[in-house]
């Protein structure tokens, strides 16, 4: 019943995915890497990189990648449908009552709590991924260099990923 397990796991992730792909990485990591052991932590990080250099939403790319790794094309389909399942119906409901939803103080209040939480989630993901990615002193220098490319030179993320691959080849091969 691996397909149902994939569907259900990704449905849970989809239900509480607020604020885009990055904020949900701790949830992915906890459920996919730690609870189910479907992916090693380093493969998990590789998957994030692959999601970045291919088109499309990160959550869809991740669901497809993990589902495919576990149970081929059927697995990819169950995981991907799972992640969008609950939101699909919620959008349907909200689109009917859009005016009331828009002015809802309840929604506004919930988001005042959620938005900072997402920041905390992203940094917790950084801390966790860093323990597997920043493996030696060279890695910390490379990390600093890549931040300069991103912040000072406003370089495109895909280009930064490509450059990091080249540096990785030179330093670690």
């Amino acid at each position: 019943m691996i397909l149902l397990s994939l569907f259900f796991t990704f449905m849970l992730i989809g239900m509480v995915s607020f604020g885009g792909g990055y904020a949900m990485l701790p949830l992915f990591e906890r459920m996919i890497v730690e609870q189910h052991g479907w992916l090693s932590r380093s493969l998990f990080i590789d998957m994030i990189a692959l999601s970045q250099i291919t088109p499309g939403p990160i959550a869809i790319n991740s669901a497809t990648f993990i589902g495919f790794q576990i149970a081929s094309v059927a697995g990819a389909a169950f995981a991907t449908v799972g992640v969008v399942f609950v939101p699909f119906f919620l959008v349907g409901i909200v689109s009917k009552y859009s005016e009331r939803f828009k002015e809802s103080k309840v929604v506004e209040g919930i988001f005042k709590g959620l938005r900072p939480a997402l920041v905390g989630m992203i940094f917790s993901s950084v801390a966790s991924i860093a323990t597997d990615a920043l493996i030696d002193i060279y890695a910390y220098f490379i990390f600093g260099f890549l931040l300069v490319l991103l912040w000072k030179f406003k370089m495109h993320p895909i280009l930064v990923i490509v450059i990091s691959g080249v540096i990785g080849f030179i330093v670690y091969y």
């Binding site: 950084v126 990390f143 990091s164």
Partner: peptide, 14 residues
């Protein structure tokens, strides 16, 4: 080796 480098960029991006 390439992915050892790429993983560092993932930390930087996030």
């Amino acid at each position: 080796a390439i992915f050892s480098g790429v993983r560092i960029s993932v930390v930087a991006l996030i």
